[in-house]
């Protein structure tokens, strides 16, 4: 059951950032990534909410894994995740009403975000509390990096600058409209494929 002895704690932490990046590699959790990445402010808010739920549910699921019967594990995961999502939703409503309004329905929709239930099922259910904590932090950082890069690109080109600072005089409005989200993530994935392919051909020629 506990196979964390073979891996170092660094592997647990780094998996979610690079090799198992939820958005770019596994292509899950796309809905909030594209919908919320209109401005950097929203993106950071969303990643904090996702990080809270992911770390919380990872900790909880791994803490109760010994008493969880395997036939009932999915409903139990969902209830654990629901609890944390509800807490996050009400905390946001209380402390940052503007952010809560901007994120809208996407905060309660974290419940069905595949990133969280995927990590609960694939990692936290079979690992110790400490490795699950690291895995949760790693996955949150991976999500945060991707959504912030997308938001930076979209806000810069679509709004003409970041926040109050305007650099471009004639911004391309399309980037903050829905099609811009698809274009940005498509370009990022294409660049990543190009980079990986070039690395491979270089390794084979050497």
């Amino acid at each position: 059951m506990n196979n964390s002895n073979k891996r170092s704690w660094r592997d647990d932490f780094a998996f979610g950032i690079l090799k198992g990046n939820p958005v770019l590699v596994l292509m899950i959790g796309l809905c909030p990534t594209l919908a919320v990445s209109v401005t950097l402010f929203n993106a950071v808010g969303m990643s904090i909410a996702v990080a809270f739920v992911l770390i919380g549910s990872n900790l909880m699921v791994s803490a109760i894994r010994k008493f969880t019967p395997s036939e009932l594990r999915i409903p139990i995961f969902i209830i654990v995740i629901c609890t944390f999502v509800t807490i996050a939703d009400y905390l946001l409503k209380a402390y940052s009403p503007t952010l809560s309004q901007k994120l809208g329905v996407f905060v309660p929709l974290i419940v069905v975000n595949c990133i969280i239930i995927g990590r609960a099922e694939a990692f936290a259910y079979t690992n110790t509390v400490f490795s699950s904590l690291l895995d949760g932090i790693g996955g949150s950082i991976g999500f945060f990096l991707v959504i912030s890069v997308i938001a930076l690109i979209r806000e810069f080109f679509g709004n003409g600058g970041i926040g109050e600072k305007i650099i471009l005089n004639k911004p391309a409005l399309i980037m903050i409209l829905p099609p811009g989200g698809f274009i940005t993530i498509g370009t990022l994935m294409g660049l990543m494929n190009y980079w990986n392919r070039r690395k491979k051909t270089r390794m084979s020629t050497n």
Binding site: F182, I185, G186, T187, M189, L191, N193
Partner: peptide, 10 residues
């Protein structure tokens, strides 16, 4: 480089 997912996004 655009085969698969990237072209689907475009």
């Amino acid at each position: 480089s655009l085969e698969g997912a990237p072209i689907a996004f475009f």
